[in-house]
Amino acid sequence: MSGLLRIIVQRLLLGLVTLFVVSIIIFVAVNALPGDFAEAILGQGATEEAVTAIREQLGLNQNAFTRYATWLGGAVRGDLGVPLSQALFAGNFGTTATGTDVITVVDQIIPRLKNTLFLAGVSAAIAVPLAVTLGVLTALYRNSAFDKAMNVSTLSAISSPEFFIAYILILFLAVLNPVFPSLSNIFPGMEFSERLNRTMLPALTLTLAVTAQMMRMTRAAIINLLASPYIEMARLKGLSPMRVIVKHALPNALAPIITVIALNLAFLVTGVVVVEVVFVYPGIGQLFVDSVKIRDIPVVQACCLIFAAVYILLNLTADILSIISNPRLRHPK
């Protein structure tokens, strides 16, 4: 297993490098946005003096490199800083942004991240079993009417923009047949069943957005293997087609399926922005949009870093699981 451990450490370190590069890209991109926090927050009141005063107070007038270095220095120590908006309010009391009762970026993000993870969890709990089952079934009945119907419907779902799917679901499941609420405003202290009920529509939207890829990959991976000699052997033994696929083909097709599942799980966390806005779901995507709107750079950067980290970690997990699931990779010669 030491080989595996080495790979994990190596990949984690590489992940850190990627994060660092991502942080630079984020910083440059956010700085390239026209307008800044001072202008966004002041709106019509953005006279030159007011803008200058706020920039000075928040250190926005320092050069980009200094700001980046300060931020990165904090981030390495786990301190993602204080949202500019909070720092501005703290200034209103004549106190500084370093006091203990100031809301930090971390304070702001954690509850939102939990909500997003909950949504991702619910979606995954629906999407993954659904996609794998459909994949197995379509492989089993390949080229049948069922296979074609499934392919057409899942591919149509993935080809439509999420907000469109979201509105279609709202129309059919909230407006015409009030099954689920169209408003997913979950909050702490809500009963689990109610929370689940309110999360259902965004979860279904995400499910429709990710099912196709996982299903198609499962189907393709299995069909690929069906020409292998051991499958033929199993068939000749007289096993039922279902048993051939589930017992003999599926375990050997796991590696690509796991990879694509991991990628889609990452999408469930990072691709929620639009879905959260449509359903008013208080997750990290909504926070991200709100923060971009007012150019609250520390929050935007922290959100991006979290998104990047999720991608990297899930990819890593996928690789490790593929290695574990494949004895040939586990014991390289």
């Binding site: 909230a174 407006v175 169209s182 408003l183 405003n185 449509v278 008013v280």
Partner: peptide, 16 residues
């Protein structure tokens, strides 16, 4: 409830 998205806001009212 904060509903900045205008379609979501209208939907919320329409669906009670």
């Amino acid at each position: 409830i904060a509903i900045n998205d205008s379609s979501a806001r209208m939907n919320a009212l329409m669906t009670g």
